[in-house]
């Protein structure tokens, strides 16, 4: 046994009793800092989740790519006919929409079982609670990367490259990552405490898929009513990344709405997390 391993065990948060007790705010903050210092663990856990799901299968994680490709092809054919759309115009939109929505949708449903699914680990070892959330986000980023292959192929086939406007998707995506982390903590904690929430989240999510312009284009809405769109957080969040990748610059109302909803989400999550962090272990 090497000597280095002896001292390498992780130090718990040492507390000095002569100091005032740590505030919930400080504890939540150190939770986040500790998760950041364990980023390699987050990354590995996220990747192993994907790898394990497809271990032993021929295509591995590329089953994700293939099933998305089939879905895009099938839905593209049907809906282009139904909506009387030009396939060259519709298919890039649809493939991008489905892939991006796939990220948001599976993130929300993973998040709602995030802490309950990690019950065994939560009860046997002290880990920062934001680590479990980061694992969910990274797992879904891996899925997204596999699915983006389909989008790239579709864009290449129809020669509809977004050009430099596409780079505008990057800050949007950065905001996605922050929101995803917040949402994973928020939903994970709420769903651990109230077991009725996951089914509610599931049905709301399905409703939002049809209410939000995912498979139908936003311009199908009558011009007088279009101002309503940014009221739907899913719309502005989705549009913020989708529009640039289709070569369009998102409107100010989209950014404003996405920004405001994100601030509200992060603030709500932070307040909740400060309040309940120490209780999550009792809830799972």
């Amino acid at each position: 046994m090497s000597a280095a391993l002896q001292t390498a065990a992780r130090q718990p948060a040492a507390r000095d009793l002569t100091q005032p007790p740590p505030t919930p705010w400080g504890e939540a903050w150190s939770d986040l800092r500790e998760a950041t210092s364990l980023w390699r663990l987050c990354w590995t856990l996220g990747w192993l989740d994907i790898k394990l799901r497809y271990r032993g299968s021929l295509l591995g994680p590329f089953w994700l790519t293939l099933s998305t490709a089939i879905m895009v092809a099938a839905m593209g054919g049907i809906y282009a006919g139904l909506f009387h759309m030009n396939l060259a115009e519709y298919l890039p939109f649809l493939s991008l929409s489905l892939v991006l929505w796939g990220f948001l949708g599976s993130l929300v449903s993973d998040a709602s079982v995030g802490y309950t699914a990690a019950e065994g680990m939560i009860r046997s070892v002290r880990m920062p609670f934001t680590l479990y959330a980061a694992r969910i986000v990274l797992r879904n980023v891996w899925v997204l990367l596999h699915n983006l292959v389909v989008v790239v192929v579709v864009l290449a086939v129809f020669k509809s490259w977004p050009g430099f406007t596409g780079l505008l998707a990057l800050p949007g995506f950065a905001l996605w990552l922050i929101d995803s982390l917040a949402l994973s903590v928020l939903l994970g904690a709420l769903c651990a405490r109230f077991r009725d929430i996951p089914p509610i989240v599931g049905s709301l999510l399905q409703m939002m898929f049809f209410v939000t312009p995912v498979i139908w284009k936003p311009d199908l809405i009558h011009a007088d009513m279009r101002w309503l769109l940014p009221l739907n957080p899913f719309y502005s969040i989705l549009e913020m990344v989708r529009a640039p990748m289709l070569g369009q610059v998102p409107g100010a109302s989209t950014y404003l709405s996405a920004g405001l909803y994100s601030i509200a989400l992060c603030a709500a999550t932070w307040l909740l997390f400060c309040r309940v962090r120490g209780r999550i272990a009792f809830w799972v």
Binding site: T7, A8, A9, R10, Q11, P12, A13, A14, R15, D16, L17, P21, L48, L52, G120, M121, I122, R123, S124, V125, R126, G278, R279, A281, F282
Partner: peptide
Amino acid sequence: LAGIYEPLIGSLRVNGSLNALLDPQLGMN
């Protein structure tokens, strides 16, 4: 003591690196 459950009443201080052998299957997938 391992920091998994946080008490609401009273105070707890643990100094030093800690290993808790509580669950034989811990982390074994």
